[in-house]
Design a protein around this nucleic acid. Structure first.
Lengths: 392, 392
DNA sequence: CGTGGTCCTGCAAAGGTTTGCAGTGAAGTA
DNA sequence: TACTTCACTGCAAACCTTTGCAGGACCACG
């Protein structure tokens, strides 16, 4: 990690003269309010004046100070996006989808990474609170009660966590886990391990619940290993434990762990899927690139990002904070409609799962291929604010 | 992607009473300035008063409005981080390093993704300008002149691009490319292709230059293929072209492309490294997980993030924008010291490179293993602001 | 010529905070 | 006692913008 300083110079150009609305007003010989209107309500100002002001602004390189504007309008046109671990490939598609959706509504997205640290999460919400119009909390690690408390400070939408009273975007990992277990049982596995993720993860709890039930129903025994760090090293670290446990199949909390586990098993000389089958969750792009290609539960990450932004903007537009008529203010009587949306998941069968010890030898390849067993019809996209529950 | 709306309720709690410094002042029976001081200069207020104010603030759930504070102090304690493509695993380590470094200095980092779009880059700089104290521009795709122009709006540090007059953090990809080519030549390859990256990438130009020179010096012929998208699909898309070109080795713009290429070649029945050797650049974690494991030029991503933050904060602290004594202001006469730091790279040899057609059969395994041929001693970390060029 | 209307612009307050300056009371000193 | 010093607190301006209100110019109509 050596490094070399190539050049170092000192210069005095470019030290940012902050040009304000007042400078533009002076330059174009009008009042500041006219300048302001030129930008925020152009139809209210004489076309002639407008072009003059615009020219001066251009000349001086004027840019409205968004912080000052936000102070008075109460809207920043920014969205905060708090992410547990930006290095997890699960998130980028979500981030990109959220960004593109936000851009269409003329919003910018600021992403912050918490390193799976609940304290950092809380601090970031505070830091973002007054600089954004709302925050998307993705896979939070803090407590529900803290989330509820923070939601009084800034509009919140929660992704991958169920918090009553708050708008949530959830992925049906319960169904995903069920499909995965059923797939494994169908392949002839009876001893199955579940590699748990972070203790405070909603997804983790949901998976345990559903996987346990599915295993019981299928006559298999489910061993729970964990909690673990939801990363490759978290996965490879339990390889030895998996081998000792004697199971023939594993469902991992996410793809990263699954891939790490496969690596770890490989190092121990355990072959996948011949000796142990492995299923992940998320269907990150990486899952198609490793060998063997990973069987996994695909989660609709992009849709989650889009939906979350929609929900945030919807609730946000209804109740602009910092309403002009202050005093006792709009506090009471503002009704907020909070919807919870559940997104479906799909089992994607690739090469990391194979027949288990109880497979019927006649047709070992008759295992269900293609999308998972449960594929209810798409009920269409209900707008989050309608308030009507859509059955399916 | 079907989804289901589980619940939808409306409630009236929690609609955020914005509690201001004035409320706290009223509650604790002091002037707002005292409340302000309680937070920003505690030693100036009577301990008794202080605890009372703090208690009231706690009670009411008061949080200083950072936007308002920034308006007057001119400092937000935020750093913007603009990234070409957040889905590229090259960036997360950089982001994390920048974040942790920033956190130590009591700064927050807001990340924004541009999707490799120069227009989005510019817009984001504007959007961030007044909400952060400085911006890290990582692998920018816009023109140098535009970058210089934007740097008058907000302090900028550029990563992976050389812009005269601006602080830059560079990785010595030139040396990396040279090492890679020498490695390939040493293995007996004489027909080598370079998979180019984005046209406007500084790294790309640097690699072409250095790789060309190294190939000439080694008596090999370098074919340039590109530009291409710096992603897996960008890499797999040129697999056919690579095969037709008849080269026996390829140096790719980055690991993602290298991995994609290997995938693509695999699909065409071309084996790596038996028929074609492939080298990437970046050493993303993924490179260790694919089969074959990727030979690649490791770039010091974390160090880059840390260094960039240091340089930004250093230049930033010297000249706090929005200085109180306004008027004609501090504009002229402020000297800014701009350093350019070059970080070294290392060739990491793994399994995607092997002997080429001109290999001496006697000792095909005598190829240089371990760190690349050029490893100058680490000159230590020069502080970016010393202004003294450090030779090496 | 008076009235009403439209269009444009200026005035000033507001938003939440920081901070230089001045004022208060008490303690310390001569 | 009178004067200085000190610790603390209040006052008000400032940061940059938006926006309700009102005033002025101009036109058309009766």
């Amino acid at each position: 990690m050596g490094h070399t300083c190539v050049t170092a110079t000192t210069s005095d150009e470019g030290a940012a003269v902050p040009v304000t609305i007042r400078d533009v007003a002076r330059a174009s010989g009008v009042h500041i309010s006219t300048v302001s209107r030129t930008f925020s309500a152009p139809h209210l100002v004489n076309p002639e004046t407008r072009v003059r002001v615009l020219a001066c602004a251009e000349d001086l390189g004027y840019r409205p100070n968004r912080a000052a504007r936000a102070l008075i309008t109460g809207r920043t046109h920014n969205i905060g996006l708090i992410i547990a671990d930006i290095a997890n490939p699960f998130f980028p598609p979500l981030i990109k989808a959220a960004e593109s959706q936000a851009r269409h509504r003329d919003y910018h997205v600021f992403v912050a990474d918490t390193n799976e640290d609940p304290t950092a999460e809380e601090e970031l919400v505070h830091a973002l609170a007054k600089q954004v119009d709302g925050v998307l909390l993705c896979s939070p690690r803090m407590s529900n009660s803290l989330i509820e408390q923070l939601s009084r400070e800034v509009p919140l939408v929660v992704v991958n966590r169920q918090v009553t009273g708050l708008p949530c975007v959830l992925m049906d990992v319960g169904q995903g886990a069920r499909s995965a277990i059923e797939h494994l049982v169908g392949l002839g596995h009876r001893g199955i391990a579940l590699l748990g993720g972070p203790r405070s993860s909603w997804t983790n709890r949901e998976m345990r619940r559903a996987a346990g039930a599915a295993a019981r129903a299928g006559g298999a025994e489910l061993t729970i290993l964990g909690p673990n760090a939801p990363t490759e090293v978290g996965g490879s670290a339990v390889a030895e434990q998996v081998r000792r446990s004697g199971v023939s199949a594993v469902l991992a909390y996410n793809d990263l762990m699954a891939i790490g586990l496969i690596e770890g098993l490989d190092a121990l000389g355990v072959r996948v899927p011949q000796e142990v089958s492995v299923v992940g969750v998320d269907d990150i792009t990486l899952s198609r690139l490793t060998r063997p290609k990973l069987t996994t539960v695909a989660t609709p990450t992009g849709a989650a990002g889009r939906t979350a932004v929609d929900m945030l903007l919807q609730q946000d537009i209804e109740s602009p904070r910092g309403a002009r008529g202050s005093g006792a203010g709009t506090a009471l009587g503002v009704r907020r409609t909070t919807a919870q949306v559940m997104l479906q998941t799909d089992l994607v069968i690739r090469d990391s799962t194979g027949p288990g010890p109880y497979a019927r030898p006649a047709r070992p390849l008759a295992a269900p291929r293609g999308p998972g067993p449960h594929c209810p019809a798409d009920p269409g996209i209900p707008t989050a604010a309608t308030g009507d529950a859509v059955a399916s």
